[in-house]
């Protein structure tokens, strides 16, 4: 079915690309915040556990619980629930700044768990080796935990980034701008199939690129996989 007010095909890029840029900015800012906060927070939660560098079981339970709550709330509900907080921080509840706050909170909760899980999969022997080799607790965390978990953390970061692209579309639907906003206003509300299809293609390509980049980084940071890759390629 065609509507008279559909965006003509040649005009679609002019509509999509600024929106894509908005999405990239939104996700980029959020991921920067997520990594800066999530890595130390994940390492902290991991090391407050009974086997960690500074075991505080009670505090660990509390922090872990807070992270779980953040993780388990559907994004739309989280976003709506913290509107007063968002307005307090950014002075607005629309646009990119307003989307960044709930996305960061959801992303930090997500990533904290990812970091914690990645650290848990590092053999705990290595922390003992580091301590026996004269490391301070912070040196243990940096070299025997985080450094060894880098490929796994990057793998998680990829999933997290893709989730944030999805969240940005949800945020876009309530007026934050970006690809999601275009998809909802043109594709959903005006039945503009051309625009709808274009947003879908852009999102699929974007997610595929992020995934590819993430996979490549995981390979690059895993000595074992790096070698396999080299061997697999014809000389």
């Amino acid at each position: 079915m065609r509507h008279s007010n559909n965006v003509p095909l040649p005009d679609i890029p002019a509509l999509i690309f600024p929106a894509l840029l908005d999405t990239l900015i939104m996700v980029g800012i959020v991921m920067a915040i997520v990594v800066i906060v999530g890595v130390p927070l994940g390492a902290l939660v991991h090391n407050l556990a009974p086997q960690g560098q500074f075991p505080r079981p009670r505090l660990h339970t509390v922090l872990s619980w807070i992270v779980s709550v953040g993780r388990s709330l559907p994004f739309l509900i989280l976003m709506a629930a913290i509107v007063p907080f968002t307005r307090f921080i950014t002075g607005t509840n629309i646009g990119i700044p307003a989307a960044v706050v709930p996305m960061s909170i959801a992303g930090i909760a997500f990533f904290t768990r990812i970091v914690e899980n990645s650290l848990r999969s590092v053999p705990p022997d290595l922390a003992r080796v580091a301590t026996a080799s004269g490391a301070s607790p912070l040196q243990v965390i940096r070299t025997a935990q985080l450094a060894e978990a880098v490929p796994s953390i990057i793998g998680g970061l990829t999933i997290n980034t893709i989730a944030m692209i999805e969240y940005s579309a949800i945020a876009g639907s309530i007026g934050a701008g970006g690809i999601g906003y275009v998809a909802v206003t043109y594709g959903y509300q005006r039945f503009d199939n051309g625009v709808m299809l274009a947003t879908i293609i852009v999102l699929v390509v974007l997610v595929a690129c992020v995934q590819k980049l993430g996979d490549a980084l995981v390979r690059l940071t895993t000595p074992y996989a790096r070698r396999q890759h080299r061997v697999a390629q014809p000389a």
Binding site: R128, A130, A135, T222
Partner: peptide, 30 residues
């Protein structure tokens, strides 16, 4: 503890460090 060297079962090497980088660990910490 610098006066005590420890050798572990299953070698305890860091998988993302070369042999030289593994040996350098205690020096790096110091």
């Amino acid at each position: 503890r610098r006066k005590i060297g420890t050798i572990f079962q299953h070698d305890g090497l860091f998988s993302r460090r070369t042999a030289a980088q593994n040996v350098a660990l205690p020096l790096e910490y110091l």
